[in-house]
Amino acid sequence: MSLSAREVDVLRGRQRILSQVSLEVRPGELLAVVGPNGAGKSTLLGALAGELRCTAGEILFEGLPLSRWKPLARARQLGVLPQDSTLSFGFTALEVVLLGRTPHGSERGGKEDTRIALAALEATGTQHLASRTYPTLSGGERQRVQLARVLAQLWEAPSNGHRYLLLDEPTSSLDLSHQHLVLELAARFAQQGGAVLAILHDLNLAARYAHRVAVLAEGHVVALGAPAQVLQPDLIERVFGIHVKVLEHTGSPVPLIVPWGRAPQAAPEAVPGKG
C-alpha cells in the first residue's frame, strides 16, 4: 500500500508542469522532494493530494485511484500542509487545530477532540498559543499551528490502512531550532508507520531526515534514492547551478553539502531525464 504517481503529466494552460513523473510515498518513510524554483514540486504535491487534475497517468492511493475515494474517507488518512494557509477569522489557535478533527465526524470541541488538539499543539511547541487569536501570530507560529491542525487530523492510525502526511515547504518560515522540530515530528510520524512527503529547499535537511530523496528538474524526476546516493556534486551542479562539496560526517552516513559558488547555467540537455 502506498500513495503513488504513475507516469503523471500535469498541464497548466499550454504549459507542461510535470512530465511522466512516477514515484511512491511509502508507509514508514520520509520522502524529501527537492529541486529549483519552478521544477514542479508543489504541482506534484497538489496532484498527489487530489487538488490538481492529471492530464495523463494516474494517482493511486492505497491501491485505488485517488478519485474513487470519498472526500471524508480520504481526509481521515491523507493530510496536507500547504505553503500558505490564509485565515483572517478571529479563531484561537486551539480552534484552528480543532478544524483538523472535522473529517472524523465528532462534534468539534468535544472532550476527545480537545484532548487531541491540545496534544498536537504541545507536539509542535505551540501549546502556549492555544488561546491566542490566529491573525495575531507570527508567520512561524502560524505554520506550526497549521502543522498541529494536520497532525490532529491524522492523530489516530486507521484500523485498515495507513496515514499520509504531505508537507509543502514546512520549514520556510521557521528558525533553525523549529525547522528541526518540524522534521523530527515528520520523522517520528514515519517511524510510527505513517508516510511523509516533504518538499524542502535545504538539501542538508533533506539529507539529515529523509529516507529517500527525489530531485525534480523542469517537471521530471531526475534522481530518486537514498540521500548519499542522490545528493552528489555533479547532479547538484547540473540541477541547481551551484558548485558544492559533499563531505562525510565521521561515523554517520548523512552527507554534508557545502555550497562553493555559482556554476555556469546548464544547457537544457545537460539536465538528466530531460525530454
Rank of each mutant, 00 (worst) to 15 (best):
A130F: 10
H128Q: 15
I116N: 01
A119M: 14
D113P: 06
V96Y: 12
T133G: 00
T102L: 12
L99R: 09
S131C: 02
T92K: 05
L121G: 01
L94Y: 04
P103S: 06
H128P: 00
L98T: 02
F91T: 01
S106T: 12
H128E: 11
A130H: 12
E107W: 15
T133E: 14
L87T: 01
F91Y: 14
T114D: 08
V97A: 11
G110I: 04
F89R: 11
V97H: 07
L118P: 01
S131M: 08
T114E: 14
D113K: 09
V97W: 06
E107T: 14
T86L: 15
G109T: 04
Q127N: 07
R132H: 08
V97S: 07
H128Y: 12
L98F: 01
T86I: 13
S88Q: 09
F89P: 00
G90K: 06
L94S: 03
H104V: 02
E112Q: 14
R108W: 00
G109H: 03
R115M: 12
S85Q: 10
A119S: 15
T126S: 12
A117T: 09
L87Y: 11
Q127G: 09
A93W: 08
R115N: 05
S85T: 15
A119P: 04
S131N: 13
A120H: 02
R132S: 09
E95C: 07
T86S: 15
T124G: 09
L118E: 09
K111Y: 01
V97I: 09
S106I: 02
I116Q: 00
L99M: 15
H128N: 13
G125A: 04
K111A: 03
G100A: 12
H128G: 08
